[in-house]
Design a protein around this nucleic acid. Structure first.
Length: 841
RNA sequence: GGGCGAUUGGCUCAGCUGGUUAGAGCGCACGGUUCACAUCCGUGAGGUCACUGGUUCGAAUCCAGUAUCGCCCACCA
């Protein structure tokens, strides 16, 4: 004998002998399906079938949208046209496609519009690198040939990216594909800019901008990446002057600087107004070395008394803080560096690179005794996001978009809940950025992009036009177009991206698409482009269309390698999603990317997750294979789907159906919460641990039980079909290929469509909680019996005579499931004893 | 200098509108050639839910603080 296992039921097991003979198979037998799921064999073909069925377009001939349901619109960040698809794209595509397929199955006209972004600066960096390999350059080609070359290049990358998205299974409406450099976008850019200009929200002016000497263009604040570096803090003496302007021998003021070369652009020395050490010096003048400029000592409370010497040199044209000081004090703004960051001030340093100039200036200062000291200094240096060059603040005349009024509208939309973030916490980040926003420098001195539609006449007038060919004459003085010169600069690439939700629908025209599909339902992207893209779409969309461009902002986390490192080409830890698809299939990739992930949180991605996902697809494949093969021969292979006969359903059948209903409700809730990781968790558990491990195993016994009549066995089978069908539907948004393939092999009703992609999302059926509870208790009994056997080291194959105590309330269910319990626990004969409670009664 | 996130079994992560024995995958141990699946089946071991204090009948879950790690924002040159 063995130990009782405890719990509410008390198994008591004795050894027995004799083999159990399973009744002869009463099922259809092995279906003609491979024993393992082979994604490569089905995916490409299925995608072609979906395309051919025309189901991706909201009103495609194969789509089965229900009249009266509101459209569902998913907005995706158009990927950069030059980039190959990476894992981040695959993840976002998986999420967006899940949203699209779910909405489509609900019968909503679903628009998910594909596109590419021209990625101005990023594309130029890529092309420049290619050209460099050919011994060419931007300059050697010139603007027109360079652009022609870019168009050729992009023409080769675009179709590659499209086919990659198809491999992932993206149900994008390809008929509506757009590009941020197409004519529709170009027009939207012109009209948007003119409107902003007319509304006083775009202006041309001199401002301190971030200059990348490598890319030879200005970049926005967001494109400057601050990085800690150890520099040097030099202390430099500036000669004090007497009131008559002559040097005051032996009198100097020491300033601390990390950038001695900018001495050439100094126009003042600032101290804190309450600094006793310098109070008497405020108002006096000092002589800037090398340029021999006499400048004032001023008081400003930006100066930190404790830092350095408490006195700071002011270079308004090359430092953001100094620029502000310069504005406050009415100083001049002399520039001292050119486009290549070489010294532009006449004199001994002219033409020198900024760092060479620094070395020479420090040496000279030391030689003349004006260098008081130096020490290492930790500081943040701004680098170009694209080229990694050290960014140079410069004062230039550029086009800006006045951000504050636009930001106010975006803030209001989120505060009032017209647009919400998933997860919520990113709203704070959004608020903080918009509340402190600076005007947006939209000018880029690049070529690949939309040229700013501003024309200048010789008299200095500015005419902004949204006409394709520009203005016919100067708007101010009427000079003919021939005398006008168009702005050379192009727009920041995010300007056109910011119009994406409506420029792709025909805006500025009042098209039917715009009326129907704007604003969007869900915008999905990574949290790393909240400022670049999300905020810009909100600002521009609200101002230009009067409506928030989307209602929900779903933010994905970043994909990292198994060690938590960011994936990057230089680290060599990049996973190519196409390679993964080749190996394991798109469904496994998608499932792995979604399973266990939560919105806004980064996730590690590696082999283990992928294998688990692949195994799950295989499990589903084989479960379906079993169900198809388990068809009672009394049911015709081509029989139309029948509902299980209610009168013949026992606890197993009721349990299966009720659990499917419970799963459906749970999936619905998780979908409504955008908790995709939860969706996969629920389905994985329901399919593997409930349906397969218990439902199918118990059903085997029923299906092979000769003591049951034919109709009862048919009912069991129809129940399996019904429940499996439900699970395939629920899983389809995440694993579209395998579910589509399997669903097609199950019997259907005549009113079902040919393809799962347009089949109906399951309704939530009625629960039978009593049965769920009873069956759960009996399944636990089986587990306890197995546990007892394992503990007692009973050979797994041995059949044991077993006695169990069953509470009276469970009696009916127990007897109904007895053959199944016996088989799963290998307990036969299985004797049911009265419970102690019953004996006492 | 602000803000945010993370801290749960060996690893990677769910759970966190407070409530029966805290879950999963991988890994691990033991046992399985049962006719869907070895990409499998069964059983099991393994967690003071970072720390401190508080609220509560009851906290991984709420509040305050601390620590470590990470991210974002920021005009100490």
């Amino acid at each position: 004998g063995i130990e009782p296992a405890g719990g509410t039921t008390t198994p008591f097991v004795r050894w027995t002998s004799g083999a159990f003979h399973f009744p002869e198979a009463m099922v259809a037998g092995e279906p003609e399906m491979p024993k393992a799921y082979v994604p490569q064999a089905v995916e490409a073909d299925l995608y072609r079938r979906w395309l051919a069925a025309d189901v991706f377009a909201p009103d495609g001939s194969g789509s089965r949208a229900r009249p009266g349901l509101p459209p569902f619109v998913i907005i995706q960040p158009p990927p950069n046209v030059t980039g190959a698809l990476h894992l981040g794209h695959a993840q976002r595509t998986a999420v967006e496609d899940a949203l699209a397929r779910h909405a489509r199955m609900q019968g909503r006209p679903t628009l998910w519009l594909p596109g590419k972004d021209h990625a101005s600066i990023a594309a130029q960096v890529v092309l420049d690198r290619i050209l460099a390999g050919e011994g060419q350059s931007r300059e050697s080609l010139g603007r027109e040939r360079y652009l022609e070359r870019m168009r050729q290049f992009v023409a080769t990358t675009r179709p590659i990216m499209t086919s990659q998205l198809e491999r992932v299974g993206a149900s994008l409406d390809w008929g509506r594909e757009r590009f941020t450099m197409d004519e529709g976008s170009a027009r939207a850019v012109r009209v948007a800019f003119k409107r902003l200009y007319d509304d006083g929200l775009a202006y041309r002016g001199e401002g301190l901008i971030n200059w990348c000497p490598g890319c030879r263009t200005s970049v926005s604040d967001l494109e400057v990446i601050p990085r800690p570096e150890t520099g040097t803090l030099w202390t430099v003496r500036y000669q004090l002057l007497r009131d008559d302007g002559s040097p005051d021998p032996g009198a100097w003021i020491a300033v601390a600087t990390t950038r001695p070369e900018t001495i050439l652009g100094d126009v003042a020395v600032a101290v804190h107004p309450e600094d006793e050490r310098y109070r008497a010096l405020v108002g006096r003048r000092v002589r800037i070395p090398f340029v021999e400029r006499d400048v004032p000592i001023i008081a400003d409370d930006v100066v930190e008394r404790e830092f350095g010497t408490g006195a700071v040199k002011i270079t308004p044209a090359h430092d953001a803080a100094d620029y502000a000081v310069g504005r406050r004090h009415g100083l001049s703004f002399p520039s001292m560096l050119d486009d290549a960051a070489r010294v532009s001030v006449p004199g001994p340093f002219e033409g020198l690179d900024r760092y060479e100039a620094r070395r020479r200036i420090v040496a000279d200062l030391e030689a003349r005794g004006d260098l008081e000291g130096s020490r290492p200094h930790e500081m943040l240096i701004g680098h170009c996001q694209r080229s990694d060059d050290v960014i140079e603040p410069r004062l230039l005349t550029q086009w800006f978009v006045r951000a504050a009024p636009l930001a106010a509208k975006a803030l209001a939309a989120v505060r009032e809940g017209r647009t919400r973030f998933v997860p919520r916490r990113f709203e704070k980040v959004f608020f903080h950025w918009l509340e402190n926003i600076h005007d947006w420098n939209v000018s880029r001195q690049l070529w690949w992009g939309h040229r700013i539609p501003a024309w200048y006449c010789p008299d200095g007038h500015v005419t902004v036009s949204d006409e394709p060919d520009g203005p016919s004459a100067c708007g101010a003085c009427g000079r003919p177009a021939g005398e006008l010169r168009q702005e050379e600069d192009i727009f920041d690439t995010w300007f056109s991206s910011g119009l994406w939700p409506f420029s792709t629908l025909g805006w500025p025209d009042h098209t039917p698409d715009l009326a129907r599909f704007y604003p969007g339902s869900v915008m999905e992207t990574g949290y790393d482009i909240i400022f670049f893209w999300v905020a810009r779409m909100m600002m521009l969309g609200l101002h230009l269309t009067g409506t928030e461009p989307f209602h929900t902002i779903y933010l994905s986390g970043l994909i990292r390698d198994p060690y938590g490192q960011k994936m990057s080409k230089t680290k060599g830890n990049v996973v190519d999603p196409l390679h993964v698809i080749d190996e394991s299939g798109a469904d496994a990739l998608r499932f792995a990317l979604i399973h266990g992930a939560t919105p806004g949180n980064d996730q590690r991605f590696g082999e283990a997750k992928l294998e688990n996902a692949r195994n799950f697809a295989n499990k589903l494949w084989n479960a379906t294979r079993f169900v198809i093969g388990a068809r009672p021969p009394s049911i015709d292979a081509k029989a139309e789907r029948r509902l299980p006969e209610a009168a013949r359903m026992g606890p197993l059948e009721h349990w299966l159906v009720s659990r499917a209903a419970g799963t459906t409700a749970a999936v619905d809730q998780a979908m409504a919460d955008y908790a995709f990781g939860e969706v996969t968790r629920i389905l994985y558990d329901a399919i593997w641990n409930e349906f397969c491990d218990w439902g199918v195993e118990l059903a085997k016994v029923h299906l092979g039980d000769t003591s049951l009549d034919e109709a009862t066995r048919e009912t069991t089978w129809w129940t399996l079909v019904e429940v499996l069908d439900t699970y395939l539907r629920l899983l389809h948004p995440v694993m579209p290929f395998v579910t589509e393939a399997l669903w097609g092999s199950l019997p259907h009703r005549s009113l079902d469509p040919d393809l799962l992609i347009v089949a109906r999302w399951p309704g939530v059926g009625e629960r039978d909680l009593d049965t769920e509870r009873d069956v759960a208790a009996l399944l636990e009994l089986v587990t306890e019996l197995r546990n007892a056997r394992a503990t007692a080291r009973v050979p797994a194959a041995a059949w044991l005579e077993t006695m169990v105590a069953i509470p009276p309330a469970l009696g009916t269910a127990f007897e109904a499931l007895r053959p199944g319990i016996e088989r799963l626990a290998r307990a036969r004969p299985l004797f049911r004893e009265l419970t102690p409670e019953a004996l006492h009664a």
